[in-house]
Amino acid sequence: MTNIPTKTILVTTGATSPFPSLLSAALSAPFLATVQSLGYSNLRVQYGDCEKLFRALSTAALPSCGSIELTGFGFTDDLRTEVTHADLVISHAGSGSILDALRFQKRLVVVANSALMDNHQKELAEELGGVGYLVEGFVENLHEAVTKAESFEFKHFPASGSEKFCSILDEEVGLNLD
């Protein structure tokens, strides 16, 4: 008997602000059909404080899951371990989550939470997407972003890139003091 390699997607919705629309998109029938067709076998969802919604959506999604193993968790002190086990990370556009995925050189789709004040996440996703570190996705077409990420030539984030990341982040939030 041969072991079939598994492919895992990690979806992070954030720890400080709920992101129910990303949760809904990641458990939608079009998304599940797409990831199954791309050979993913595990979908791991960090649902934050939206456990009730996750339970309801995952129950409704079971018929669409096919061979995909769906698991979820609210919060963890060790999100980096979750990231290291993922083949693809779909993340809210929180800077900490983005940086973790980039440091581990993971394929990364970032979805900004447009419900947040001043939409600073979108600016960060656009900037890092524009230089090739990630694919920017949207809740309306998350399945398309995952398809794009499969063939996208991601630029590797430099090991010493924290200075560059910080300067981009500072500029985007208006802290560039030059």
Rank of each mutant, 00 (worst) to 15 (best):
M1N: 10
N3P: 02
I4D: 02
L10G: 06
T16Y: 11
P20M: 05
L22Q: 05
L22E: 08
L22T: 06
S24E: 14
P30H: 12
P30S: 11
T34H: 08
T34M: 15
Q36Y: 05
L38D: 03
N42D: 13
L43K: 08
G48W: 11
E51Q: 07
K52V: 06
R55V: 13
S58H: 11
T59R: 13
A61C: 03
G66N: 10
I68S: 04
E69Q: 12
E69P: 00
L70P: 06
L70V: 14
G74K: 10
F75H: 09
T76R: 12
D77A: 14
D78N: 15
D78K: 13
R80I: 10
E82T: 05
T84H: 07
D87Y: 05
L88V: 05
H92Q: 14
H92K: 03
S95H: 13
G96K: 07
L99G: 10
R103M: 06
F104K: 02
S114K: 12
A115P: 00
L116N: 02
N119W: 01
H120W: 02
L124I: 13
L124W: 11
G130P: 09
V131G: 02
E144S: 10
A145Q: 04
S151M: 01
K164L: 12
C166I: 10
S167C: 05
E171V: 00
N176K: 15
N176D: 11
L177K: 06
D178C: 01
